[in-house]
Design a protein around this nucleic acid. Structure first.
Length: 264
DNA sequence: TCCGGAATGG
DNA sequence: CCATTCCGGA
């Protein structure tokens, strides 16, 4: 789990280094121009982030959300996708496809209640932010709080108490993940972040629209986190690496975190 | 309600 | 890949 991630490669100079860590499909550029359409979980997070006082809202547990008005949500989703005939039945089918990807799971017993697996939702696409660590301290986002239940946020093995008074909730994407140690670059954030050298942000739209601090969210495979990670360890018969691997060999890539080359 | 297979299309 | 559509089954 220890990756010398930062040793040889400068975050700023390696815009695409992170591609080695994540499968191609994780980089679905959200809705940047000329890219593919927004994904459902983007959309959900967007609504949740807006504190959409209607169709959907955060639940009682961390990452849990409740669809208060399924058909309205479906309508909104349909509008976004240009699918006038969208309904909750179909939308929920799409949600169920996330089970296998482990982006979501169902909170059983609670109607219309699902839960994000935030350990799979990580910040990527922004070279300077291969890890969550440096972002955690301050998250200036108007992200909707998870009601009452916020305890502490684990990040990189550091327990981070969430001060509800100061900040309702760190963005869910900040979760224990990947890189073990804070990178030097973290310092640059506070001081001079050399914005001029900031590489083009592939997901600028996503970032803006979701009010993500930086970088875009993406899903990523990580089986090295707590096995099952508190998930209903389903057998996952169809769990094949191919669904995550652009090249197939990224399960190991995590150990190395990044070796070299990122071009395809 | 919820699940997941199957077919299909972008 | 990521849904969308349809659907039989629990």
């Amino acid at each position: 789990m220890q990756c010398g991630c930062t040793s040889s490669v400068s975050p700023l100079s390696s815009p695409y280094w992170s591609r080695m860590l994540f499968p191609d499909w994780a980089y679905k550029p959200a809705w940047s121009p000329g890219s593919r359409q927004v994904q459902l979980w983007h959309f959900l997070l967007e609504l949740l982030g807006r504190g959409s006082g209607g169709a959907i809202g955060w639940g009682s547990e961390w990452g849990e959300f409740v669809i208060r008005d399924p058909e309205t949500l479906a309508r909104l989703w349909g509008e976004r996708k240009g699918k006038p005939h969208m309904n909750y039945d179909k939308l929920s089918r799409a949600l169920r496809y996330y089970y296998n990807k482990r982006i979501l799971h169902k909170t059983k017993g609670k109607r219309f209640t699902y839960k994000f697996n935030f350990s799979k939702l990580v910040l990527v696409n922004y070279p300077g932010f291969q890890t969550c660590h440096q972002l955690l301290p301050r998250v200036p986002l108007s992200f909707s709080p998870f009601s009452s239940e916020t305890g502490s946020l684990l990040c990189g093995g550091v327990d981070l108490p969430l001060d509800r008074g100061l900040q309702p909730m760190a963005h869910p994407f900040f979760h224990p993940y990947c890189l073990p140690k804070p990178i030097p670059f973290a310092r640059a954030l506070q001081g001079h972040a050399s914005p001029q050298s900031a590489p083009p942000l592939p997901c600028a739209h996503l970032v803006r629209d979701l009010r993500l601090p930086l970088g875009a969210a993406a899903t990523v495979r990580d089986d090295f986190l707590s096995p099952g990670g508190g998930w209903p360890a389903k057998s996952l018969p169809g769990w094949d690496p191919r669904s995550f691997a652009s090249g197939g060999r990224e399960s190991e890539a995590r150990n190395k975190c990044l070796g070299r080359r990122a071009e395809k």
